[in-house]
Structure formats: structure tokens, C-alpha cells
Computed example of a mutant assay.
Amino acid sequence: MTALITAGFDGTDESLAALSWAAREAVRQDAALRVVHAWEVHPDATVDRATQEGWARDAVTRAVERIAARHTGLDITADTVEGPVVETLAGAGGLLVLGSRGHGAVVGFLLGSVGQQVIADAVHPVVLVRAGDDAAHEAAGRDIVVGQEGAPEDSADALGFAFATAAARGARVRAVRAWTLPPLFAYSPGSLMLLDEVGGPEPFERKALADAVRPWRERYPKVSVVEHIEMGSAGQVLLAAAGEAQLVVVGRRARRTAVGARIGSVAHGVLHHAPCPVAVVPHA
């Protein structure tokens, strides 16, 4: 899936969980692991720049030593980068893994403005990991849930990421498509004809999901797949499926708007409330 996995690290419990997740994934993917600590000089600090840089380097060194001891043979490099955090992390190569504070099912993820902007600006997939996440959450029997919407090409990148990850883990993919009944005036003569040909809206949605998943079934024949359609909002349906998942994969449009890059409402909702790690995959 990728030759490089980058873990953003800042010494917090959340970033330690993200680093552990990234290391396990690097082993599974036979990828190199890069640990990046982006920091900026605090002008009001009581110590000078050199001391601040030393603290950053020491924290990264200790974390890398722990990971190297757990995963002997893993190719690990560490970089302490002075500069803007968002630009540094968003421009990192390969899959990017970040930590995210969580406070239970009600409050959910506290993603923060930096995390949101990194996800919005990153050109590669970004995985958010809660503090406390560990290898036990990747136990057999837990699905990799991926959201599918629109035409097959609209979710191709997210589906590809989910299937590649499932193949490396020996996991099952649960492909989820949500649907709602639009207002009567939204039906055009053409759409009514298509719905009539397949027997109604539910069979239409089932066929749309099957068509999107088919090429990935063919590419990864050993990956078990469940195709799940459900009436409701995309965010709610994905969150319901995420309860027993080991990873949720959502797509987001990579286009920038007049007000800047955006995560999207579905990805935003899943990021804030899913109980497991969430991968956000950009697509055109």
C-alpha cells in the first residue's frame, strides 16, 4: 500500500498511541517508519531555543528507542523539524498517522484546529488514533469499515485503502453505503426510469455498492467482504457500523474552495465520534 509511514509525534499519550499504531502497520506493510516532531520556538519560554530543541530531540529519541525495542528490524528514522506544524505534517510523505484526544462516546474526538487543518491539507491518507488504542483493538473478527458513496470512482481511493489494509491484516471489509429518500421534486424522469428498471431505490443502492466494490473484490480475492446498505445519513450509518470495527475509512474531496480546504461533514462526524482509529483518504 505504501513504502513509507510517517507518525507525527509531540510527546503526548495520543501521539505515543499513534506511533505504536504506525509501527505495527509498518511491520505489516513492510514499510519504513518516519517519526516527525514538528516544533516552533516559543518566544515567551523561560529557556532559550537550543534548550527547547534539545527537549524535542530527547523526547523523539526516547520514543524511537521504545518502538525499535518492540519491533526489531523495523526501518525507523526520526526528524525533529523546526517550523510550522501544519505545513510540516501535511507535507510529510506516505501515510500520515496522528494522535487525537478522546473523551468517550459523548464528547468524542477533540481533533483540534491543527489536526483538522493537517487532514484538510494532506495529499496522502491520514489516520487518527485515540490515546489508549493498542494491538488488542486489531483482534480477529473486527471489520475494516469503509464508506462508499456516489459513483464507483468517487470512493475508489477509500475502497482501495480499505482493501489493501484488510489484505495485510487478514481482516474482513465491511463496505457501507447509506441512502435516503429524496423529496419527490428531486426525482428527474431519467432517475425515475433507472429506479424503475432495478425495482426501486433499495435495489438501486445495493447495485451501486456492488458495482463500486467489484473491482476491489477482483484485485483482492482473498479478502472477505460484506456489502452493507442502510437507510439514514452517511455519518450515522458509518458510526453505527464502527462500533465493533478495528478501523474506519472515509473519503474526502481534495479540492480547495474559496474558504480553503475542508474535511467534509461525514468525515468530520466520524472523526469526532468513532471509537476506533479513522483513516481519511483524499480523492479528486
Rank of each mutant, 00 (worst) to 15 (best):
A162P: 04
L184T: 14
G11H: 07
A68V: 05
I229Y: 06
D121T: 11
E197I: 07
V249W: 05
G141A: 07
E40Q: 15
A59R: 15
A139H: 09
F204W: 02
A261R: 11
D44G: 13
H272T: 08
A186H: 03
G232W: 05
A17L: 06
S100D: 11
G147P: 08
R142D: 10
D157M: 09
M231H: 14
V86N: 06
T165N: 12
W55A: 15
V123F: 14
A164R: 00
L128G: 07
L98K: 01
L33W: 08
V249H: 00
G141V: 06
P221I: 03
V225P: 04
R174M: 12
Q117N: 09
V118C: 02
I229R: 09
V97M: 06
Q246N: 02
A135S: 10
R256H: 11
A279L: 02
H71E: 13
A164Y: 10
P182E: 05
R57D: 01
P43Q: 13
K207P: 01
S113M: 03
V127T: 00
W216C: 12
V266T: 02
A22W: 07
D133F: 15
Q117W: 01
R255W: 13
P125C: 09
A284K: 13
V237K: 08
A279Y: 02
G132M: 09
R172W: 11
I67D: 00
D48M: 12
V266G: 13
G132I: 01
W39D: 12
D157N: 14
F161Y: 10
T51G: 13
G93A: 14
A261I: 05
A23P: 05
A167V: 10
R101K: 05
A168P: 02
I5V: 13
Q236K: 15
V213C: 13
A164Q: 02
R28H: 13
V145Q: 04
S191M: 15
A122W: 09
R24I: 11
L128P: 11
A151M: 08
P203F: 03
V173D: 07
V64D: 08
V198Q: 05
L111C: 07
Y220C: 11
V249C: 10
E14N: 09
E218N: 15
P84M: 05
G83E: 01
L96V: 10
A140D: 15
A210Q: 08
